[in-house]
Amino acid sequence: MIYFDNVSKVYSPTSIALEDVSFSIAPKEFVSIVGRSGAGKSTLLKLLLAEESPSSGSVFFESHNIHKLSRKELPFLRRKMGVVFQDYRLLPHRTAYENVAFALEAAGKSEDDIAHDVQQVLELVGLMDKAWHFPHELSGGEKQRAAIARALVVAPEVVIADEPTGNLDPMNTWEIVRLLEKINDLGTTVILATHDKEIINYLKRRVLTIEKGKLVRDEAEGRYVL
């Protein structure tokens, strides 16, 4: 489903973010990407989202080389991916409900579909009672749940979470992790980048370990070893 083929990303000769990384991810997998800050986790995800282009190598999503897609095709690819960031990145002038609805509006869904789907995902993440609050009126955990709802509402094939628990307290961290597990159980591929040892050891799923831009370990039931 997702395939990285000898991908390198070089910002400058002294700053090599990724070096010859190859791996593939099958549908419905739950894959964690671990590594220290600056190891290249975020770069890898940015390449997958086509936010950045690789210096060499290619990234495939369902047989499409995503960096060869035109500007017009790119939004359609991104609607198959749900993204969650460490800093939530909600639209500040929209309520939680509108933030979730935005992804569907952009995809041209009808108002009835939007009303139905948004309510469903907000219930799934447990944010229905705060639906009409603006982001600045929500706590960190609530913001992240709104962001996950936004990622889920388009019924993506893969959810990409970049350090989603980085800014959260332990209680909220575990809620988010369980939510991601639930999403995976419902049949969606999940890619989770994190440096949280406890989460990795708890999940007991596939782990890709990145060190200084290189993929150093790929274990089916990995533990956090650095």
């Binding site: 017009k72 939004p75 359609f76 609607r79 990145r89 992804a103 952009a106 388009v154």
Partner: peptide, 9 residues
């Protein structure tokens, strides 16, 4: 963010 959640230009 709008671009990353799949909004067209």
């Amino acid at each position: 963010v709008m671009q990353l959640v799949g909004a067209s230009r």
